[in-house]
Amino acid sequence: MSETTEDSDIALEVRALTRRYGSLIAVDHLDLTVHRGDIYAFLGPNGAGKTTAMRCMLGIIRRDAGTVKIFGDDHLSRARRALGAIIEIPAFHNWLSAKKNLQMACAYAGLPKDQWNAEVDRVIERVALKGRENETVRTYSLGMKQRLGIARALLGHPRLLLLDEPTNGLDPKGMREMRELIRSLALNDKITVFVSSHLLAEVQAMANRVGIIQHGKLRAEGHLDDLLRAADAAGRIRVHSPDLPKLKAAVEAIDGASFTEDEQGGFLDVASANMDSVELNRVLVTREVPVSAIAPVRSTLEDIFLEATR
């Protein structure tokens, strides 16, 4: 057992995490490393084991094997002092006001009683619910409940936030607000964020590191920029031509090149490990293929995700 270390560079370290439901292995020897300051996106298709893994990390369900360290501390009920979390839709005592819910959460968090009101005011303001805090939670919309959930997770100045699908059920405006809030928490409040999602565009807009899980196993992990660069290095080039059959014939003749065709769009995505767009253009011109447009295809997180979960 080790104590939480303020200077630990690793905010969350998961090793060989395993959880079984009978014969089904929901999480299978999962290894993850989240560094201080990261916005780490935990991705995976539905049923991949994201929520189960997060629940195991938080200790709300048992794990069959593996270790979880939060800022170097593997004693979870103690390490949770440095942690705020939302799992799925946050639950509240709906007949109580938002403020009362938060005050009670202060009691559970072990904050000194004379700090409760100031702390509640701080987090209420942080999630822009000022003026609505005395209303009962049952009057809140889903978006407001999500923000109130974030507020509760922020009580006690956590250094690590674990958010499970925080934009679930939100409208586009709510999603954008949530995304901006998460970014702001990471940038302004210096909170490390571990966020699970399957909304890839959302994630790409805010995360710096990703981990992709499927069937309970980690399929890919790394800095988003590195993963994108590596995917780009595989070299896909989009070529438009008014004479698509001639273009196809010319690409087929190139050694080591392959393509996928979009008939409706009238273009080919050409993959070639040893040829860039300039070189391909030169070859096509020499073979008298009319080319209306040619450009390298930038990989997206979606490409990485689909490749990892194929």
Binding site: L58, S77, H93
Partner: peptide
């Protein structure tokens, strides 16, 4: 049923 117990369990307290 309301899943509020989860929010308490997530706090730094023994069960």
């Amino acid at each position: 049923v309301g899943r509020t117990v989860r929010e308490d369990v997530l706090r730094p307290v023994p069960r």
